[in-house]
């Protein structure tokens, strides 16, 4: 119920055409990883707090809020198959109708899976709340 906290590195974002799909997200993660590698920049350390209300992102160094994403804007989450330390989600932009895939690098494959399963559990709990509230 309370936020579960994870410490990850932000790889980046890319636009996607659909709110979900294994191949779509795999292709998006591939693009993000390639861009991050090409830039050669140090990745931003971020803290991710996951709850049935959504995902809150903070900059780990400054504790500054990056984004508070409502669960209703998140369509999909995955632990990537090719890049197995990568966790990613697809979210509808706050500003317009576009869909964005955001990817994060975890220290271990198990951690990418744990974040994905935690977000999936948040989806389920949010759905239970929603059904009750209806």
């Amino acid at each position: 119920q309370e936020g579960m906290v994870f410490h990850l590195k932000y790889l980046g974002v890319t636009m996607v055409e659909q709110p979900k799909g294994e191949e779509l997200s795999a292709a998006a993660v591939k693009r993000i990883v390639a861009t991050a590698k090409a830039s050669g920049k140090k990745l931003q350390k971020v803290t991710l707090s996951v709850s049935p209300r959504g995902i809150i992102l903070y900059d780990s160094a400054s504790n500054q809020l990056i984004e508070n994403i409502s669960i209703y804007r998140i369509s999909y989450c995955t632990a990537d198959k090719m890049h197995d330390k990568v966790f990613a989600y697809i979210v509808q932009s706050q500003h317009n109708e576009t869909l964005e895939c955001h990817a994060f690098l975890c220290s271990k494959r198990k951690m990418a899976q744990a974040v994905t399963l935690t977000v999936a559990q948040a989806f389920r709990v949010a759905f239970e709340y929603w059904q009750t509230a209806k």
């Binding site: 294994e22 369509s75 999909y76 198959k81 399963l117 977000v119 709340y129």
Partner: peptide, 18 residues
Amino acid sequence: NTNTIHFDNPVYQKTTED
């Protein structure tokens, strides 16, 4: 390969407003 994990959000684009 079956070890990919991915989940759709059942409340995506739903709201409690209506």
